[in-house]
Amino acid sequence: MNRSHLFNYIEEKLSHLASRIEVRGKLNLLDLHLHSENFYLHFFNELFGWPLENLNTIKPNAEAIDLIDHVNKIVVQVSATATKAKVESALAKDLSAYTGYSFKFISISKDACSLRTQAFFNPHKLVFDPLCDIFDVPSILKYITALDVDDQRRIADFIRKELGAEVDVRKLETNLAAVIKILAKQDLRRGNSAVETVPFKVDEKIEFNSLDASRDIIDDYLVHHSRVDRIYTDFDRGGVNKSLSVLDAIRGYYRAHKSQLGGDALFRKVVDCATDTVLSSLNHEPLPWEELELCVNILAVDAFVRCKIFKNPVGYAHAAS
């Protein structure tokens, strides 16, 4: 999984957890809060290398403080409320035992950006810089996006273990994932029959759409057009619209982004959207990232040849689909 998909996965999971808390309101809020409190304990330990502990397991019903790190002298409050009053209420509690400790505030549902520019009453003089010590999902994601790919993969693996097993009602089977599953079992090293004749010159369509960086991908995977056609033919034996639904899905990604993007950026976006769909499909069978990317690129090139994506040069008809 590349940096883009690793970050997108992390962003989706953290944002989903935050939205669950916000949408549920008071319904099961305590359970969600406790789950989030423990999640962020382990998450921050993984992210920053802190040895945080849940203070409630050491000192039940501890006021204002949820997590503590005695090694680095850090105390943390985890809250579903992000207001100045909430922060000051925590700081006003009897925290005299933590003199010299750094106070961190984690908003688990609301954006806390406005709090970082405010001044807070801090009677026990804990070390507290609102700009650096108030966390929310956007600030955490900003930190993660600067990490190298190995650290992002480590964080994504942790989140997958913690949150990935949760049933997501939005996760459905897709025909795109089913085709990828079939294509992944093909021996793509073996020779393939010649590319079927299409009523336009591929090079001219590449130039017409300014696909300079994508040219190599299209040239390399064009040879698999007839192979994909046979897969679609077999796939349609299970339903007359199965292959059409896959091609329309790919075309849908193209249509959704063509007003904002063009050329190579648009081609890459189509591939990324198709990849995200496969990864989030209930019937997706995990593949090494390189194999998944290869298969999605092949389907995108095939859609290009069938004129489902990108404009044809003037004067050329559409290829058969």
Score class of each variant (00 low, 15 high):
164 G>H: 13
164 G>T: 14
166 E>P: 00
166 E>S: 09
166 E>T: 08
167 V>Q: 02
167 V>W: 01
168 D>P: 03
168 D>H: 12
169 V>K: 09
169 V>C: 08
169 V>E: 08
169 V>P: 01
170 R>Y: 14
170 R>C: 13
170 R>M: 13
171 K>G: 07
171 K>R: 15
171 K>W: 09
172 L>M: 10
173 E>R: 09
173 E>D: 11
174 T>D: 13
174 T>E: 09
174 T>S: 14
174 T>Q: 11
175 N>G: 08
175 N>S: 08
175 N>V: 04
175 N>C: 05
175 N>W: 04
176 L>A: 10
176 L>K: 05
176 L>G: 06
177 A>I: 11
177 A>S: 15
177 A>T: 10
177 A>D: 12
177 A>N: 13
178 A>L: 12
178 A>F: 03
178 A>P: 04
178 A>W: 03
179 V>K: 01
179 V>A: 04
179 V>F: 03
179 V>T: 07
179 V>I: 15
180 I>Y: 10
180 I>G: 13
181 K>D: 14
182 I>V: 06
182 I>E: 08
182 I>Y: 04
182 I>H: 05
182 I>P: 00
182 I>A: 06
182 I>M: 11
183 L>S: 01
183 L>H: 02
183 L>E: 04
185 K>V: 13
185 K>L: 13
185 K>F: 05
185 K>N: 14
185 K>T: 14
186 Q>I: 06
186 Q>P: 01
186 Q>W: 03
187 D>C: 01
187 D>L: 00
187 D>S: 03
187 D>F: 01
188 L>W: 03
188 L>R: 02
188 L>H: 03
188 L>S: 02
188 L>G: 02
188 L>M: 07
188 L>T: 02
189 R>Q: 12
189 R>D: 12
189 R>H: 11
189 R>L: 11
189 R>G: 14
190 R>I: 10
190 R>N: 08
191 G>Y: 07
191 G>T: 04
191 G>K: 13
192 N>W: 00
192 N>T: 07
192 N>Y: 01
192 N>S: 04
193 S>K: 09
193 S>L: 10
193 S>N: 08
193 S>A: 10
193 S>D: 13
194 A>L: 11
194 A>Q: 07
194 A>W: 01
195 V>Y: 00
196 E>R: 09
196 E>Y: 05
196 E>W: 02
196 E>C: 01
197 T>G: 03
197 T>S: 04
197 T>L: 08
197 T>Y: 05
197 T>A: 12
198 V>T: 05
198 V>H: 02
198 V>R: 06
198 V>L: 05
198 V>M: 04
199 P>K: 03
200 F>K: 09
200 F>E: 10
200 F>M: 09
200 F>P: 11
200 F>R: 09
200 F>A: 11
201 K>V: 12
202 V>F: 05
203 D>L: 04
203 D>T: 01
204 E>P: 08
205 K>V: 09
205 K>W: 10
205 K>L: 12
205 K>R: 15
206 I>W: 00
206 I>Y: 00
206 I>S: 00
206 I>L: 01
207 E>V: 13
207 E>A: 15
208 F>T: 15
208 F>H: 15
208 F>S: 15
209 N>A: 15
